[in-house]
């Protein structure tokens, strides 16, 4: 297994209250790693550590090491790190521009000025997100007019314009219906050929369907992690078993 990210002894907290305790985890390349656990266990905090956002928050503290392809992320420039480790949040948050402008927002910042090139990037990433055919006639329409599921796919496509090495998804389907979730799940399975994906979800069934690796976190501690098939079939820890059986969560 080739590692994309390595997390070693990660501790994190806000305002003196520790949220993550000593987490060590590996994120394999071109796989989907699902992070599961009861609400409030620190899953989202973990994602915000991975892309360096937590370090920037007032009152937040982060210790331990996070490596991206062997390179210490703490030593990387913040915006560079965020570009390489993209994050799509829970609620779809398209910018109130047209679909095309949403897609070229990042590339323009990275210095792409050529219109044809911008259009190409937009098209390519929209195709990857499986949205292109639905919106190709209306690229100049406001992104706010799209449905919830389309907006979320647009946000994923937009995150891809940064050419990230890792794509973090924070419960991307929690605001969507079953059908829209299924479309996103299918897209993620396709995307893993090109990107490394980490998805936080409280939906065990979803994790079971799409993930290759799973990490179970409870009360800010990593209880266990490993290949999805193994972990779901025979969890080693009692707590994991209880969670999977739906005793709490």
């Amino acid at each position: 297994m080739e590692k994309r990210m390595t997390i070693q002894n990660l501790c994190a907290g806000y305002d003196g209250k520790q949220v993550l305790h000593n987490i060590s985890l590996e994120i394999p390349s071109n796989k989907i790693t699902a992070i599961i656990g009861p609400s409030g266990c620190g899953k989202s905090t973990l994602l915000h550590c991975l892309n360096g956002m937590l370090r920037q928050e007032t009152g937040a503290s982060v210790s331990g090491e996070i490596l991206l392809d062997g390179q210490d992320t703490a030593a990387m420039q913040e915006d560079q790190l965020r570009r390489q480790v993209g994050l799509v949040s829970q609620t779809p948050s398209p910018f109130p521009f047209s679909i095309l402008e949403n897609m070229t927002y990042g590339p323009r910042y990275y210095g792409v000025r050529n219109k044809t090139q911008l259009q190409q990037i937009a098209e390519e990433k929209l195709r990857l997100a499986g949205l292109y055919d639905e919106v190709k006639e209306q690229l100049h329409k406001s992104a706010l007019k799209l449905s919830g599921g389309q907006q979320q796919r647009l946000c994923i496509a937009r995150a891809l314009t940064a050419e990230p090495r890792v794509l973090l998804l924070d419960e991307p389907c929690s605001a969507l219906d079953v059908q829209a979730s299924a479309v996103i799940e299918e897209m993620l399975t396709r995307l893993k050929q090109t990107y490394t994906i980490v998805i936080v979800t409280h939906n065990i069934v979803q994790a079971r369907r799409i993930s290759d690796y799973v990490a179970f976190i409870k009360d800010g501690r990593l209880v266990e992690w490993g290949e999805a098939a193994c972990l779901f079939a025979s969890p080693q820890q009692e707590e994991t078993r209880a969670f999977l059986d739906g005793i709490y969560g």
Partner: peptide, 17 residues
């Protein structure tokens, strides 16, 4: 909306941009 600002940061864009 904070999520709109966050979304821009998550794309690696600077505060100024």
């Amino acid at each position: 909306p904070p999520q709109m600002i966050q979304a821009s940061y998550h794309l690696g864009c600077s505060r100024f941009y």
